[in-house]
Structures are given as C-alpha cells and as structure tokens.
Design a protein around this nucleic acid. Structure first.
Length: 952
RNA sequence: GCUCGAGUGGCGGAACUGGUAGACGCGCUGGAUUCAAAAUCCAGUAACUUCGGUUGUGCGGGUUCGAUUCCCGCCUCGAGCACCA
C-alpha cells in the first residue's frame, strides 16, 4: 500500500475532532504546560505558507510535552476586531461582523488542514460580546484604580478617597496628571461631588484627558506611538499630524520601572528585551530649577495666571555634574513659559519661530536633524549656584513631550548644545579637566574629572554627581530624579469595529456602567464613517443612550440628562482585547468571572509563546502592563504573562520577474538581457516552473495586455524569469498557499519542510522546489513499515546497528526539541530512516518507538503507522521513547590524524587505548612516515577519543 | 549616530563546552530501469591542481599543537531605536 497522505490526513483530522483528542482539562495530576501562539487577526487574504511557521513549531512542542507527561493547554482564537474589516465595511456597506465571520471560517479550514493540536473548545474571539464583556470589565477595574508609587502597586480608588478625606493629597505619592493642585482634608470634604470626580480622574489608571495625539486623517482615527513607523501610519503609510483631543488614556507610565525590572526574569531574546528597554527609556539624573532673573522675574511675577512653581524653569538632566558648564537654556517652542517671558523686542521673532515650528510635521522635524534653528527670547534665568544670568533661547531640537520640555544647555558636554552654541556664537565654557572641546563636545562620563566648577572642581564624574544632587536638594534648587520615555497610551479610537466603552456622561463627567449590566453591545449604525459633525461612527447610532433606571441602552431621543445619558462614542483600540486573552483561554466559558481563580492558579501564565517580532513594543508591553495591574488588584497570581518567548523569522517569497524592453512591447528572457534598458514586471509564481521557465500562454491569459507581446526566448524556446527574494505578499504575486501544498504533498510534508528550511528565529526564503526532499523522506519512512503493498513489521529482536540508529536519533531529537532546533531534528530523522533502510530494519522494537518519536512533527503518518502496529489508542498520549546509553557505547574510534593541524588521514583505534599507546601506533603507521618524509616531529598531541596532531 | 543580530558550496543550511569544515536536503552531472517520460534506485558534486598537493567559513591581525568557534581592529547586510537632554 503506497503512502496515501490525503486519505490518511483526512482520516486522522476527523478522528481528533470527533474524539476531542486535544481537549485540555483544568484539573489533572500531571504538571501543566501552556503553549500559545500570538493571536491571529483573521484577514480576508487567508493564510500563506509563512503564517503557520510559528504554529507548527509551537504545535511540535505542545505535542512533545504531551508525550512526556504534561497536561498541555494549546488553544487558539481570533483577534477579530480591527481596521481591515471596517475599511471593507466602509467600502461595501457589509457589516464587519459578517466579513469577520467569513474570514474566520476560511482561516479555520486552512488551519484544520495542517493538523494542529489546538483545543478548539476554548476558542475566543475578541469581537464576541461574551468576550468583550470582560474587556469592558477590566476597563472598569482600571478606572476604579490608582497607582501608589510608594507601595509600587495599583490600589482601589476608594482607598485614595479615604486618604483625601482624612489628610488631603499632600503626602500622597501617586502617578497622576501634572496639573494636580494640592488640597487639604478640609477642602476635599467641602468639594462638590463633581469636583471630587474631576480630581479623581487625574489619578485613575484610565483617565480622560485632553492630550496631544497622533491623528491620522486618512484613517480617521488616532494612533498609538507603536502604530507609527517613521512618522507615518504603520497600516497604510498615511501621514500623521499632532492634534489636541480629549481621549481615554492608560497610565502605563506608572508601571515603567516594574516593566523594566520584570524583563530580567523573562526568557525572551535579548533583542526583544532591548527594544522594550529602549521604549521604556529610563534615564537617571536630576530635576534642576532655574529661577527667573531680574526683569524677567518681575515680568512673570505680575502674571496672575501662573502658579508658584511655574515661575521658574525646571529642567531634567542626566548630567547635573556639568551644571557649571551651563551657558544658556533652551525651551521647546511649545513650552508654556515662552509667551510669558519673551521681551517686547524679541516678541515678533519668537512668535514667527513658534508659528513656523508648529506647522512643521513630526516627520519633517525628525527628518531634518541637521539644520540648527532657534531664537533668543530676550529673557534670562538665574544660575542656581553662581547666580549669574543665563540667556533663555527656544529651539525645536528640544522636544515638548520629553522631560519638562526645557534643557539646561551645556555646550562643552553635549553635541547638540555645542552645535547650537557655535551656530549662535554663545560662549562654550570648558568644565572638564584635560578635555579638548575645540572641535566637538566632550560627552565622556566614567573617569571624567570636573574643573572650573566651584565645589565640584577636581571631583570625578560619579562623586560630582552625588555631591551636586545633595547640594541641589539642600538649597531647594532641585532633586535627584529618574525619567522615563514611556508615555501614557492613548486608548480611544474613532472607529466602529472595536469594543464600546462601558461609559456614559453626566454633565461631561464619565460614569461607568455597573459591571452586572455588561456587555454593552456595539449598536447598529447606518454607515461606518464619522458623522457629518466629525464625531466617531458610533455617533451615527440612533439607539446609543444609557437609561440609568432600566439599565439598558435606549434611543438617543430619550436623553434628558436626568436619568438617560449619552454613551461614549469612541471605541477601544486593537490591543484592548489582546492584552488579556491568554487568561481567558484558561477558563473560556466562564460567565461569572474573566477567569476563575482556580483555573488561573492552575495554568498560571504562558510557558511558551511564539509569534512575530512586530509586537515587541505594542502587544507585549501592554499585556505585561495589564497583567501587572490585574495582579496588583488580586485578580491574578502572576505578574508576567509570558515566561518564554520566541520570535519566528519571516518566510520570504521568491518573486518572479519578466523584463520588458523600455518603451516596447517586447519581453526579454533573463539570460538575454545584456545591457538593455528593461523594466522588471512581477509574474505570478504559479506561472513559473521549478526551472524558472515561464508558462507563456498562461502569462498572456493572466495579463491580456501582453497577449500580442513579442517574447525573446532562450535557444530552446523557453522564457527564463528573474528571481528575487521579497516579503511574501499578494501584491508581489509570490504568495504560496498552504492548502495547495497540503493537497500536493500532505500536511506532514508541509510541517516538516517548514521546520527543515532553517532555524526558527531566522528569516528565510520559501522555495517549493525543495519540498520533494522532505516528501521523499516520508515515503521512505512509510516503506520501512511495509513490504511492497503490505504492512509488515517483524517481532524479532532488532540488530545492534538498528538500535544504535534509533537511540542516536532519540538522543539528538530530544535535545533539539528542547532547544527549539527543529531544522536539525528533521535532518536527524532523515539520517535515521536512511540508516534503517540500508539495514533493512523492520523490527517492531525499533519502528514502534520511531512512530512516537516523529509524531510531533508528522502526526498523521505517525497515527496511521501507530494504529497499523496494533494500537487502539491515539499516538498523541503514547510515552515518548527514552534514550538509553547502552546502545551507543562504542569500542572503536576513527581517529583523525592531523599534521600541523591539517587532517591527512584517519585511523581506527580502540577507544580504551592509552595515550602513549596511541602515539606509538600512529607513529608506526607508514602513512605517518610518508607525511613526515624523514623529519622528526617536535611534538605529538594526543587527545584520547578526539584527535591526534603531529607537529613538526 | 546608538543598540542587537548575522556573514560558511550554485541554493536552504549543519558543525555539542576550540579537535576530521560543508551533515541533511535541493539543484546539477553521470549511470540503471523504461518504447519514452514521470517515479524510483546507484555513483559523483567547495575551488584550484602539474593529481604530489594547494587554498578555503566577509576582510586584516592575534592567542593556540589546532580557530567557523576565543581576543583586537575593520567591512557588508538585516532588525530596532533615533534631536530623549
């Protein structure tokens, strides 16, 4: 019987599904293991061969863990809210729920064909109200929490209210908005309830605030920082502008230090951790206050609109030790003080500069790093130690969004300050011992000795740093401070297809819908575009008001602002649902809780997470944040979501090209190009065979505009296409569909070939031509168990050679799986089958364990062989074979004999032969004498069991 | 500019803590089988070579009996961050 993979694979896929083979139980005596793939977005284009790479790797590992006695959780589901379905809805009017359902169906069919061991009984979809009910619930928990910086922990907002009522806010060390005013217990108790709500909003972990956001007009929504790449939107590449809008934000910045520290405990790649460290951007330094000087101070003092601490300029610096090198200050053009301090003489120039830089987009500002621009304000600040006046400039090299939006400029130590000073002819005092600053600034830290700096002179960097901070604190001119680049995350999207906020507004103040009334379902709308008045698509809904008496959604007409109030019109961003989904899988059907305490305690968190590196600073940071938050509030026993994480490399496509002569309807075969000016045109790879020959007729049919084109072909009449490795994408016509591979070669071949391509983490090109090697291997494997058409295994004892082949393979494959080196284990299987074939081994003693060994990689053929071997239970729970040393013991070693480090010949010697004995035997060999050619060796190095090297 | 990866045959890649460079597979060449093709099987396949050898893991040095592996200095490619004070 030949290897009929189509039949075998269909049979076992049906068996697994009918028997719920991969259903995981929440109670087991076995140790648990949780394997998770990154949440897929079910796109309309379906899967190409690059998508399943990570799924196959995680599936092999999950199956392996099951064989070795673990209770494995390996779920799958869909991150099904998102932009593409909504863009499609805008174009076609079709409800995104319909397109999404259709795409999911297709996705599932494709996944099923590859034979994954997913527990589909736990499937979740973020767009399912039974799921987003809990996303909304978590949002409410965030709203009801604040961050205690003292305890480094999220706490209930009610506890904060108690503190306010008993002692005011002066001693509260909380993560909050910058503009919180101090108040006493008395004033708190006298505040109106509305005033109290307004203040509490400044402390909540999710809060409503007018912030400068990244607005993308083409997408009609705001974007988070991680959704912008090089100043344009990641999706679509549209321009992004800065705009002030009232938005929901998440106070993730409160967690900066913990998000940073937590990385050390994680088994993630260094590069991924590095990305997160960069993103969090910790810098240690000091806050320094510069009082305003003379006339400037007088001018500002008269301005009643400023609070006391606004009447000075605060800067953040990592080098407070260089404070005596300050020769000017620079404010961001957007800085609040700019207007207040500018002198009348400078007013015109400053206003023009501010206006010009406001017009420049973020992108322009980033692109244009070289040109130095700035204006003097005419104002002066007072140096905190020398009391000398320091001129205040504005310049757009200072970012409004980082630190305080102002810097103390130390041109001798910072290149940007240096360039600015040179350009505007500002003095550059040198405060470093033995530093040459005639050409460039001197940015050195360790070992640098400070000079010309009063009480800091003669001190080394570290000592100076400590001393100056002490002095700043003593004189009230500043304090030591750590700054983070991580900004709070904007949480609102002006889109339809996302989770509705469980929020209604009373007098403009947000109120939470009581959790027991969730989910708040997405309303039906006529169209998915923003309203004519510029409100988000939910503004089109006619039933979108909250009745606080009936606790239900009612018609907008009933809004009376007494018992019926308007609902929030924004929806949540994509990362809301994906920040906690890993926990939902633990207890997917639970209607009482987002996950039960028992289920979560049992599964803890994800042991192995596999997915793409594009989520480094988005999803992976946000889900760490939510996990820490839910842990703080007693909802989770763990503080991190993903213990081990592997980024699979991208599978690239091999695009094919035809070449058109410039301006002519003539296509030239690749080898005839010569020096002609040609224009390469993508060809669908399905029109090209393994020898790169184009199906000319097929091509003409595909692109009718070339039906009359002239083809300059090779001598044999073939047209050879050019090849190039590019990202796999529809637009490049280089997509290979896994369905076709499964149809032609089978899922087992696909699985093994994807692994065989190379190391999991590495990017590598797909080449369908190479798949025959793996397919032949499976055929050879099949043959081992068959004699001609008949299944036949022998009950006789296997030969020593065969047992050695088997155990060598067990050892190597087990090591490889543990190290996620799947490509080398496929090679190992090939070697094993080649050896067993040569040995004509068909002994059950070898073939039965081999079937289990290969089951994680090629599960269908393994099941079939396993059942033919007479087993009635599925192979998935069969015990994994254990390697036994005794089969591998060697008595002879084929020693390489090297001369001056170069191997010349080999010699078989007993492994127990002693060093001097080996030397004698080797030296006595005639080949040795021939190599030496009469010379006497200086030295003979013998490493028993390894090598012999003769020097001289 | 900074950080992190990576450079090995025609191609994908292998080589565990320094010890036979190129495993395994693709492709290619030759052969068997076949009326023929596909499929299958066998042999060969780093380069150069006067067939003795010589050179070879991005480049230049170093350590070592011995380096793809360790150290120093460069080059190239990829990824991330990027006026972050």
């Amino acid at each position: 019987m030949s290897y009929n993979f189509n039949e075998i694979e269909a049979k076992w896929q049906k068996y697994w599904s009918e028997n719920q083979t991969f259903r995981a139980s929440n109670s087991s005596d076995k140790p648990k293991y949780y394997v998770l793939d990154m949440f897929p977005y079910p796109s309309g284009a379906g899967l190409h061969v690059g998508h399943p790479l990570g799924y196959i790797a995680s599936d092999i590992y999950a199956r392996y863990k099951r064989h070795t006695g673990f209770n494995v959780l390996h779920p799958q589901g869909y991150d099904s809210f998102g932009l593409p379905a909504e863009q499609y809805a805008i174009q076609t009017g079709q409800h995104p729920a319909l397109t999404t359902a259709k795409n999911i169906k297709r996705y599932r069919e494709q996944l099923d064909k590859i034979g994954f061991s997913f527990d589909w009984s736990r499937e979740v979809r973020t767009s399912d109200p039974e799921y987003y009910k809990w996303t909304q619930w978590i949002f409410i928990q965030l709203f009801e929490s604040w961050y205690d910086l003292e305890a480094e922990k999220s706490r209930a907002i009610s506890e904060l209210e108690e503190v306010f009522a008993s002692e005011g806010n002066s001693r509260v060390n909380a993560a909050c908005d910058d503009d919180v005013e101090e108040f006493s217990a008395d004033s708190w108790n006298n505040f109106s309830s509305e005033e109290k709500q307004r203040i509490l909003l400044k402390y909540r972990l999710t809060y409503l605030a007018e912030t400068e956001v990244n607005w993308c007009p083409q997408l009609g929504t705001v974007l988070a920082n991680d959704e912008i790449v090089n100043g344009v939107s990641e999706r679509g590449g549209y321009p992004v502008v800065r705009k002030k809008m009232t938005q929901w934000s998440m106070r993730i910045s409160a967690f900066s230090e913990r998000l940073l520290q937590g990385l050390d405990q994680l088994d993630w790649t260094e590069s991924l951790k590095e990305s997160q460290r960069n993103w969090i951007g910790k810098s240690v330094g000091a806050m320094v206050h510069f009082n305003l000087y003379g006339e400037t101070l007088k001018k500002v003092k008269d301005d009643g609109s400023l609070s006391e601490h606004q009447k000075r300029i605060s800067v953040f610096t990592t080098r407070p030790d260089t404070i005596f090198g300050v020769s000017f200050m620079t404010l961001a053009p957007e800085h609040d003080l700019v207007k207040k301090i500018t002198t009348p003489q400078q007013k015109e120039e400053v206003q023009a500069y501010v206006a010009a830089s406001a017009k420049r987009s973020e992108r322009e500002r980033m692109a244009d790093v070289k040109s130095i621009t700035g204006v003097f304000t005419g104002a002066y600040a007072e140096h905190p130690f020398t009391k000398e006046p320091v001129p205040i400039w504005i310049g757009d090299y200072v970012l409004a969004g980082y630190g305080t939006g102002a810097v103390m400029a130390v041109p001798c130590g910072d290149q940007r300050d240096y360039d600015f000073a040179k350009h505007f002819e500002i003095p550059i005092p040198n405060i470093f011992e033995n530093a040459d600053i005639s050409e460039a600034a001197f940015p050195g830290k360790e070992g640098t000795v400070i000079a010309n700096s009063d009480f800091l002179s003669g001190l080394e960097y570290k000592e100076a740093l400590q001393k100056v901070i002490l002095e700043l604190e003593k004189t009230g001119h500043g304090y030591g401070k750590t700054n983070y680049r991580l900004r709070d995350a904007v949480f609102s999207r002006q889109r339809y297809w996302g989770e509705p906020f469980p929020v209604y507004y009373v007098n403009g103040m947000p109120q939470m819908i009581d959790a027991q009334h969730l989910p708040l379902r997405l309303p039906e709308v006529e169209k998915y575009l923003p309203t004519e008045t510029g409100e988000p698509p939910l503004g089109n809904a006619t039933n979108w008001a909250w009745d606080t008496k009936a606790n239900e959604v009612v018609s907008n007409k009933e809004i009376d602002d007494k018992t019926v109030f308007p609902l929030e019109l924004n929806t949540m961003p994509g990362w809301a649902g994906s920040s906690w989904y890993l926990f939902r899988y633990m207890d997917a059907g639970n209607e009482q809780e987002f996950v039960s305490k028992e289920a979560q305690k049992y599964w803890e968190n994800v042991d192995l997470y596999i997915g793409g590196s594009e989520h480094a600073t988005g999803h992976l940071l946000y889900s760490r944040f939510w996990t820490k938050f839910l842990h703080d509030r007693g909802q989770l026993s763990v503080e991190e979501p993903f213990k081990k994480l592997i980024n699979q490399g991208m599978i690239l496509g091999q695009s094919a090209f035809v070449y058109r002569l410039e301006g002519e309807n003539v296509l030239v075969s690749k080898n005839l190009l010569g020096k002609n000016e040609v224009q390469p045109i993508h060809v669908d790879v399905s029109l090209v065979n393994h020898s790169d020959e184009l199906d000319i007729e097929g091509f003409k049919k595909w692109r009718p505009e070339f039906k009359d084109a002239k083809f300059l072909t090779e001598k044999d009449g073939s047209y050879i296409v050019g090849r190039e490795v590019e990202k796999m994408s529809k637009s490049k016509y280089n997509v290979v569909n896994p369905d076709d591979i499964c149809e032609d070669y089978g899922a087992d071949t696909l699985r093994m070939y994807e692994m065989f391509l190379g190391p999991l983490e590495q990017a590598k090109p797909w080449n369908t031509a190479g798949i025959t090697g793996v397919h032949n291997f499976l055929k050879k494997l099949w043959k081992l168990y068959h004699n001609g058409e008949e299944f036949e295994v022998s009950e006789e004892k296997a030969s020593a050679d065969s047992l050695k082949s088997l155990h060598k393979t067990i050892k190597k494959v087990t090591e490889d799986i543990e190290e996620f080196s799947f490509n080398t284990s496929v090679s190992t299987f090939m070697i094993c089958v080649n050896e067993l074939s040569a040995q004509k081994c068909n002994s059950r003693e070898v073939l039965e364990p081999l079937a289990v060994l290969i089951a994680p990689y090629a599960p269908h053929i393994a099941e079939e062989l396993w059942s033919k071997l007479g087993n009635s239970e599925s192979v998935v729970n069969a015990e994994y074979p254990v390697y036994e040393e005794k089969y591998l013991v060697e008595s002879i070693k084929n020693y390489p004999i090297s001369f001056n480090g170069k191997m010349r010949f080999t010699m078989e010697l007993p492994l127990d032969m002693q060093k001097d004995e080996i030397e004698k035997t080797v030296m006595a060999d005639e080949r040795t004498q021939k190599q030496l050619d009469g010379r006497t060796p200086k030295k003979v190095i013998v490493v028993p069991g390894k090598i012999v090297n003769i020097v001289g």
